[in-house]
Structure formats: C-alpha cells, structure tokens
C-alpha cells in the first residue's frame, strides 16, 4: 500500500502572508505537499483555507486588492518572485471547485476543451484522452453512449466527476480541490472520495474540506487553519488521535467552528 519512502515534494510553502487590502488573511503559512499524497486543509469558515488553496495555482490573482509575501515553491520554482507563466502553471495544477461547473457543451467537448486549446488536434488522440480520463474518474461506463449530449444533463455528482476528468485532461501533476463534495449527496460524495484515493497513485492532491470525517477518512496529512494561521500540520492519524494544540483538539471534537 505504502509507496516508496522518498516522495517528490510538489509544493513547499514558506512564510506565506496574504492581504486583501488591509485584511491580513494568511499569516506565516508553512506547508509541504508531496506527490502521491492527499493533503487535507480543515478549519472553520473564514479561516483562510479557501484563500490558501487558490494561491497554489494563483487563481487568487483574480481577486482585487491581493498582496502576498513569502514563497510558494512549486517544484522548486517560486510562484511569487519569478514571472510565472500562468498558462503552464494551471495546466500542471488542476483545480476542482465547490460546485461542478461544466461548460454548457457536450460531455466530449468539455473534456477536450483544454487539450484542444493547448494544441492537440488529432481526433484519435482526443478520443483517447476522453476515454482515459473518463475511465480515471469512473464515469466512462455511465456516459460512453452519450458523449455528444450536453453535460448539463448529468447529475451533480456526475458533473463533478466530469470536471475532475476535464482537469485531468491537461495532464496535471497536482489536483487542487476546493470543498469538492460540499454540494453533493452522501453517495456521490463517497464516489468522489473513492476516486481521490485512486487518483493519489498518480497525483498530488490538496483538498479543502469543512467535513472533518472526510479529512480523517481519506487524507494522509492534515493542516488545521485558524484565523489565517496554520495551528497544526501533521500526519492525519496523529492530528485526529493525538493533537498537540488545544485549539485543534477543541475544533476536531466539535467544540467550535
């Protein structure tokens, strides 16, 4: 079950601080996310966990008034000091949002959207991408007969898996997930969780969740955010069974948040 002991470091975040205008949203955040691991980020609403995950592919730049200091090293390249190519970065760092957000196009077109614009033209290659990624997210059997129908006709859980397939189609090495199951029913949630455990064999996964059971079920490491600080970041089993910080214990035992 356990992979090789030396896993490649994908993200190394050092002393990251972030402000929205005057509001100090992230304070001295330090984190390390490795390949073939699921890294869960938990914390109460407004603790900065969604802000944090959006810094990893610089989607945060869409928000007005954002200022950052520190380092976000993605494979030893600091996203904050060099002029990063956002196109390259986001191809390699896929992102899944709270609610499945397929384009109002066919299932097929949704998946090939990224690869096509990134220059893959051959029909056979595109067909193959569609089949592999849909199989990766265990959606192939459900939709293989209606690839040309609109993605809007899928259920919420299917849409979310389609979005994961769409992100995988640009061959990323990280998948960021921002509360991917918060809008889904328990059965769809379970499917996505199974999928994540499957995906971690190939990718590094960072997931923000407000569901502590989810974090403890699927993740390898967990970071607990509070008021923009990382209170505790360690092995998931340790954080949930034997937390070092009193505040962590209060949170995971449901005393606040």
């Amino acid at each position: 079950m356990q992979a090789a002991p030396t896993k490649e470091t994908i993200f190394q975040v050092n002393d990251l601080n972030l402000w929205y205008d005057d509001f100090h949203a992230l304070k001295d955040v330090n984190l390390e996310a490795k390949n073939n691991e699921i890294y869960a980020i938990i914390g109460p609403s407004g603790c900065g966990k969604s802000t944090f995950i959006k810094t990893l592919n610089l989607m945060i730049n869409m928000e007005p008034g954002v200022r950052m200091t520190g380092e976000i090293n993605y494979k030893e390249k600091n996203l904050l000091d060099s002029r990063v190519d956002l196109v390259d970065l986001r191809r390699n760092v896929g992102m899944i949002f709270q609610k499945g957000n397929p384009f109002p196009q066919s299932i097929y077109d949704n998946i090939v959207y990224g690869p096509k614009i990134h220059g893959i033209k051959k029909k056979s290659e595109l067909d193959e991408i569609v089949e592999t990624t849909l199989k990766d997210v265990a959606l192939w059997d459900e939709v293989k007969d209606r690839l040309k129908t609109s993605a809007m006709g899928l259920s919420g859980g299917q849409q979310q898996r389609l979005c994961i397939a769409r992100a995988l189609a640009t061959t990323p090495d990280v998948v960021l997930m921002d509360e991917p199951t918060s809008a889904l029913d328990p059965i769809s949630t379970l499917k996505i969780e199974e999928l994540m455990t499957e995906l971690k064999k190939k990718y590094c996964i960072v997931i923000v969740t407000h569901n502590m059971q989810q974090a403890s079920r699927i993740s390898d490491k967990t970071a607990f955010f509070l008021h923009g600080h990382v209170v505790e970041a360690t092995e998931t089993s340790k954080l949930f069974s034997n937390p070092e910080d009193k505040r962590t214990e209060d949170y995971i035992s449901g005393r606040f948040g």
Binding site: M59, M62, M95, F97, N101, F103, Y113, I117, C163, T170
Partner: peptide, 27 residues
C-alpha cells in the same frame, strides 16, 4: 456569465483571450 464558468476555463490554463472567446462570448 456565472463566475464558475470563467474560473473553470482559467483554472485549466486557458488564456484570458481564449476564455473570452470560447466561454464568455458564447454564453
């Protein structure tokens, strides 16, 4: 146009112009 649509495209590493052309304008 829903913000999610725009985010979806940008998060795939699609440039702003392409996002405008293929997502925002059709919608």
């Amino acid at each position: 146009v829903p913000k999610e649509q725009k985010e979806a495209s940008l998060a795939l590493g699609i440039t702003r112009w392409h996002t405008i052309k293929t997502v925002l304008l059709p919608y």
